[in-house]
């Protein structure tokens, strides 16, 4: 039984030679919320554009609900709603008509009741007959979500739903996405805001330079990749890290009053016990102790940097050999 959305070895080379996607494999299960996390130009939009039918893949295949997205496009596209990154709208149409139009376009017979409910869920009821150009930016984005949901899709793609959006609106959008997810819709969102992925996603796929670097459940990713830091508030400031402690990854903060120890939770031994033992044998006392988990942001930067290092290494090797 293939996954609800199954992406296999998907590549896209644009006509200008730009490699947007490079052999992407990804399986998405029904009902989950997956975040495609990556910097600008990583290939996130290209990936979802291919699944939605806006961009032709150069090679590889995608199936949705067991159907090929190109051969059985009628079946797959009916299941999908897309909220694009920009706000493309027909300025002179009314809110109700444009949502109704989207529903028809996706092959559904009119259902004004459903659309009324949708507009009400998205707080657009009092704008039902307004021209779109009269809406605020936040309303336009909600309208695009309404259009994407107009044909009752089971999958929703949100391309950078909170790019260039103020804090209040971002919070609002997050609430909305949470509600959608609770209704059982499978959601794929792209973002370059780590906190967005951290806030909402079940799983995170980190994508950079057209390749997926890692796909993990968010919690596991944070656990696995997570570094922890232990902060020790010293009784006496430390001007220099003693040589005896050279084996530990240590540094000082705030004029030597705080000693920071970096350790990885993935190791069997974190080294905390021995460090504390060593400190006490050296008669270094401390008043307080706390630990901190690194955020998805730190993990992300690590992953992307690592990748860049590997590439650089490969490049230099290639250059020297040939």
């Amino acid at each position: 039984m293939p996954s609800f959305i199954s992406i296999e070895n998907l590549s896209k080379v644009y006509q200008n030679g730009h490699i947007a996607l490079n052999g992407v494999d990804l399986d998405i299960e029904e009902g989950e919320l997956i975040a495609l996390l990556g910097p600008n130009g990583a290939g996130k939009t290209t990936l979802i554009s291919i699944i939605c039918g806006l961009v032709r893949p150069s090679s590889g295949s995608v199936t949705v609900d067991g159907h090929d997205i190109i051969r059985d496009y009628r079946h797959t596209r009916k299941l999908i709603g897309l909220v694009p990154q920009e706000l493309p709208i027909e300025p002179f149409e009314s809110v109700f008509k444009t949502v109704n139009f989207s529903r028809g376009l996706f092959g559904k017979t009119p259902n004004p009741k459903y659309i009324d409910q949708l507009l009400s869920d998205l707080s657009l009821t009092d704008k039902k007959y307004s021209q779109i150009k009269a809406l605020s930016g936040g309303m336009k984005r909600r309208l695009l979500i309404a259009k994407a949901l107009s044909h009752e899709p089971r999958i929703l793609f949100l391309d950078e739903p909170t790019a260039g959006v103020d804090v209040n609106l971002r919070k609002e959008t997050w609430d909305l996405i949470h509600r959608l997810r609770e209704s059982g819709v499978t959601i794929i969102l792209t973002t370059h805001y780590i906190e967005e992925a951290e806030e909402m996603a079940d799983r995170v796929a980190v994508i950079n330079n057209g390749s997926i670097i890692v796909v993990e459940r968010k919690t596991e990713l944070m656990q696995k990749m997570g570094k922890k830091q232990m902060f020790l508030e010293l009784q006496q400031p430390m001007t220099q890290i003693p040589e005896e402690l050279g084996d530990y990854d240590l540094y000082t903060q705030e004029d030597g009053t705080i000693l920071v120890y970096n350790y990885e939770t993935t190791r069997k031994r974190t080294g905390i016990t021995s460090l504390l033992k060593d400190l006490s044998s050296m008669q270094i006392g401390f008043r307080d102790l706390r630990t901190e988990q690194s955020s998805l942001e730190d993990i992300f930067i690590d992953l992307v940097d690592e990748r860049v290092e590997v590439l650089k290494h490969a490049e230099s090797k290639y250059a020297s050999t040939g």
């Binding site: 806006l54 009628r74 797959t76 493309p88 300025p91 989207s102 996706f106 092959g107 259009k147």
Partner: peptide, 11 residues
Amino acid sequence: TGTTYEILSAP
């Protein structure tokens, strides 16, 4: 206006 995205992604 950019609204072709909808037509091209429709079944």
